[in-house]
Each structure stands twice: as structure tokens, then as C-alpha cells.
């Protein structure tokens, strides 16, 4: 009966993942390996960026007239924020579908999302990356890693650490069923600062991590060290988010740009 319960939990979490995220690894890989009828539009310089802004991300850029006179770096930063906000909303819905999450104290739900969403976001971003670039605008565009690196500082430092993480993470060859459980494990984490009902969350975390372990054994029978490797990735993601939060604070202080209110809430008093 216990194994049956674990399989049910794995299935519920996987279904919630497929239902709530607009992009997933399977879709992203289809696009990145050229198996779609229309390939993504490649953004590799200022000219192709402007073309993409007029078509693919017109809604994001056009939503604020204040962006018109800003430089490319600030406009790209704004688009990154829009994508992050969309993913945070998707992650919130996903979290609510994880069995037990909605029964938690509301303050604890807020805390788990505050600390978990960026780790989850960067883990899922890896699905949209290859060594040369990143899918953007729901898979209709592809921005090159070289172009992102060529932006002026500090914006040029924004994506490169995520590419470096993604290349190592992608070598683990997880599929969407593994990622669904991994993302749930990131969110239901008992050691976030300020949690009220730690034992409750620890019990949830324990069941999800057990299910992840069991699932990896059956889905990747030849890779016996995959589970400990993934646990290490949880540590790496925490570091990646700490550095990202510092960079965002630096950009906020030194650049003429604004931060979305939802992201402001998340970053405030974070680390």
C-alpha cells in the first residue's frame, strides 16, 4: 500500500506540473532540436533584438511607454522580469496542487514560495537552455549566450551563471516526470527562514523526497548516483539564487530601472 501511495503522489505532482507550466522540457527540447515546423527567431545582436521586440515580445515592451527610450540592457532586464513573474504565478498554482500544501499555515505557504520560486525557476530554465542560448517568448525566440555575454555590465553577468548551472544540470538527463518531483521538493523545504510549522512541512518534504528517490530508481535504473547528485543540485541552486538576488539589488541601486512589485516582495529581506 505504501508503494501505491507513493506512485499516486508522483502521478499527482507530475499531472500538476504538466497542467500548470506553459513550457516544459519535452516541448523545449522539440524546439531546440529543430523538430518543429517553424524554428524560433534567433536574437543575436541589437538589430535582431529590435525585430523581436516589435513582434515576439511587443506586449511586454509595449506595456510601458517608459521603456521606449531605455537602452537594450534595461529592456532585456524588463522582459526577464515579465517571464519570471509569469513563472512565479505558474509555480504558485503548481504548489497549490501539491497534496498537503494548501493545508499549510498561509504564512508558511508565503515563506515556501518566497524562498523556493527562484530556485525552481532556475532549475526549470535549464530545460530551455543549450550551450549556445536560451528559448524566450514561450519558445518563439532564441537569444544567444554570446549576445547576452556581450551586454554591458552588470547585465552581462545575469545569465552566464545560469548557463553554467544548466549545462551541468542538463547532463543529468532528467525528464519532465523527474523535474516535477524535483520542483515540488524545492518548494516543500523545511529549512526556509521563518517557517512556523516546521514538522508539518518536514513530513511533506520527506514524502516528496522519498517519492523522488523511488521514481529515479525506476526511471533511471542505470544511474545509481542520480539521487545524491540531485540533492547536491539543491545546494547549488541556493547559491545561484543568493548571487542572483545580490545582482538584482546592485542593478536596482545603480541602474535607471524598476523592479516588478511581485519580485520586490520576494527579494525584500530574503537573504
Amino acid at each position: 500500500p505504501q508503494v501505491a501511495d507513493q506512485k499516486t503522489l508522483a502521478k499527482q505532482i507530475y499531472e500538476a506540473y504538466l497542467k500548470n507550466f506553459n513550457m516544459n522540457k519535452s516541448k523545449a527540447r522539440t524546439i531546440l532540436t529543430g523538430k518543429t515546423s517553424t524554428p524560433p527567431f534567433v536574437i543575436h545582436d541589437m538589430e535582431t533584438l529590435q525585430l523581436a521586440e516589435q513582434t515576439l515580445v511587443a506586449k511586454m515592451v509595449g506595456s510601458s511607454g517608459a521603456l521606449l527610450n531605455k537602452d537594450a540592457e534595461v529592456r532585456i532586464f524588463h522582459c526577464c522580469q515579465c517571464t519570471s513573474v509569469e513563472t512565479v504565478t505558474e509555480l504558485t498554482e503548481f504548489a497549490k496542487s501539491v497534496p498537503g500544501f494548501s493545508n499549510l499555515d498561509l504564512n508558511d505557504q508565503v515563506t515556501l514560495l518566497k524562498y523556493g520560486v527562484h530556485e525552481a525557476l532556475f532549475a526549470m530554465l535549464a530545460s530551455c537552455m543549450n550551450k549556445d542560448g536560451l528559448l524566450v517568448a514561450h519558445g518563439s525566440g532564441f537569444i544567444t549566450r554570446e549576445f547576452l555575454k556581450s551586454l554591458r555590465r552588470p547585465f552581462s553577468q545575469m545569465m552566464e551563471p545560469k548557463f553554467q548551472f544548466a549545462m551541468k544540470f542538463n547532463s543529468l538527463e532528467l525528464d519532465d516526470s523527474d523535474l516535477a518531483l524535483f520542483v515540488a521538493a524545492i518548494i516543500c523545504c523545511g529549512d526556509r527562514p521563518g517557517l512556523v510549522n516546521v514538522p508539518h512541512i518536514e513530513r511533506m518534504q520527506e514524502s516528496i523526497v522519498n517519492v523522488l528517490h523511488l521514481h529515479l530508481k525506476s526511471n533511471h535504473p542505470d544511474n545509481e548516483f542520480l539521487f545524491p547528485k540531485l540533492l547536491q543540485k539543491l545546494v547549488d541552486l541556493r547559491q545561484l539564487v543568493t548571487e542572483h538576488a545580490q545582482l538584482v539589488q546592485e542593478i536596482k541601486k545603480t541602474e535607471d530601472t524598476s523592479l516588478h512589485p511581485l519580485l520586490q516582495e520576494i527579494y525584500r529581506d530574503m537573504y
Binding site: K59, V85, T89, T92, K96, L106, Q109, K114, L262, R268
Partner: peptide, 21 residues
Amino acid sequence: LKEKHKILHRLLQNSSSPVDL
């Protein structure tokens, strides 16, 4: 905590209210 995270709180309580981009 809920007071300091009004948008997250709203998303948790009401999924049908979108966040402006």
C-alpha cells in the same frame, strides 16, 4: 508576513486574479 507579501498572498488565495506585467 502576509502583509509584506500582498501579491503572493493574493495569488495563493485567488488564482483567477492575474498579475500585471
